[in-house]
Simulated assay, not measured.
Amino acid sequence: MAALAPSIVVPTDAELLQAQADLWRNSLCYLKSMALKCATELGIPTAIYSLGGAASLPDLIASLSLPQAKLPFLGRLMRLLSSSGVFAVVESPEAVYSLTPLSYLLVDGIAADNNHMDHAPFLLTVTSAHYIDLAIDLADWFKKEAKTPPFDHKHAASLFEESMERKAPGFHKMSILGLLVHDNFATSIAVREYQDVFQGVKSVTDCCYHGDGTTGKALAKAFPLIKITVLDLPQEIRKIPADGVVNYVGGDMFKSIPRAQMVLLKMVLHHWSDEDCVKILANCRKAIPSREEGGKVVIADIILDPASGPVMFQTQLLMDVCMMLMKGGRQRDVNDWRDLIQKAGFSDYKLLKKFGARGVLEIYP
């Protein structure tokens, strides 16, 4: 006998009116992404920065060499983006726009701030037709027996890999730049915040995925007494100039990992399925000494956590679906990470303090 379904509560008139507004908002929220893409392609964040940090609409029209007739339309675009926190606006007597921390990330050419990275490549990758088409066709993907992620299913090529470079070299280059920004941003902040993780460590292997050695170089600079090894695909290692400080090794973390007291996996595992992650972690365990000898693996990755607040949690969930579309990987909560750690044969783990949308786990053999 089927379980009795709870009785349906008919919404009130006020709830239905609010629901309609919520439906409109959720149906059209992609326009915020497109407006942000438009502003970035026009160079608005960089223009505001170049104008001293504040600009009126006429200032922007002149600086960007836009037709004067577009001024009212630009005002509507800026109004939407300001309401979303992309820009700040002061109305006195005409609207003057300034940068917020979000739009600061989209300024091109800031050299003085070591913590700055232009995030335009990431934004332009995930708002490109190559990516948007995946979301548009997601229902079709669900109905099919396709075992490949939506990106591979749609494009007959894999994101970040040579197969995509052959099909769309321009998009491939942009996506690699986006990946580097995504992975490397705030590396210097993380090194300061997590100095204790490296106390007493004599050697580190940094396992990368299409990296450029940024983390390894930052670690070598911050901890000159630690031997730093960077492992990445051979074709990626060949692109990194030898510096005589970091040991660059071309290889495959699915096969073996250079031995070290500590193995670092920063923004790597979310690209892979649980089964693949267990294989990688098992190889990490083989590469480190016992816990008594200081052996450990450090995972820096997104950790799904409702307690992080509704905005941050939604960001984490969006990144989860993003990985589902692109690579077939996933974001994980603490319980998911614990299960992977145990399946890979580790004995214990410790969750360190959060780092934006990410967290850091120390795991022990």
Rank of each mutant, 00 (worst) to 15 (best):
Y248N: 00
C277V: 12
C277F: 15
G251N: 03
Q261H: 09
E275P: 13
D274E: 14
V249F: 08
I228H: 06
I240S: 13
L265C: 10
D243W: 11
S273C: 11
V230R: 02
Q261L: 06
L225T: 14
V263D: 08
P258C: 01
V246Y: 07
I237N: 06
M267L: 12
A222L: 12
G251P: 05
R259T: 13
E236G: 03
P234R: 06
A260F: 08
V230K: 05
P258R: 06
I226Q: 11
Y248P: 01
K217E: 13
L219Y: 14
G244E: 08
M253R: 05
L233S: 04
V230N: 05
V245H: 15
L265P: 04
L264G: 02
G244H: 12
S273R: 11
L265E: 00
L265S: 03
Q261N: 09
L225F: 15
D252A: 03
R238V: 12
V230H: 06
L264I: 10
P258N: 03
S256L: 00
M253I: 06
T229V: 07
F223S: 08
K221N: 14
T214P: 02
K221L: 12
D232A: 04
Y248C: 01
D276V: 04
I226Y: 10
D243M: 10
L265R: 00
E275D: 15
I240C: 14
S273I: 03
K266W: 11
V230F: 04
L225P: 12
I226N: 10
Y248W: 03
F223P: 11
N247E: 09
D232P: 05
N247K: 10
V245W: 15
A222Q: 13
L233A: 09
V246E: 04
F223C: 08
K239G: 02
P241N: 09
M253D: 00
V263S: 09
L231M: 02
S273F: 09
L231R: 00
E236W: 13
V263K: 04
P234M: 03
T229A: 07
D274N: 15
A220T: 14
P258T: 00
K239Q: 14
N247L: 02
S273V: 01
V249S: 03
G244C: 08
V249L: 03
Q235I: 02
L219G: 05
F254G: 02
S273E: 08
F223M: 07
L233T: 03
F254M: 01
I226C: 10
K266Q: 13
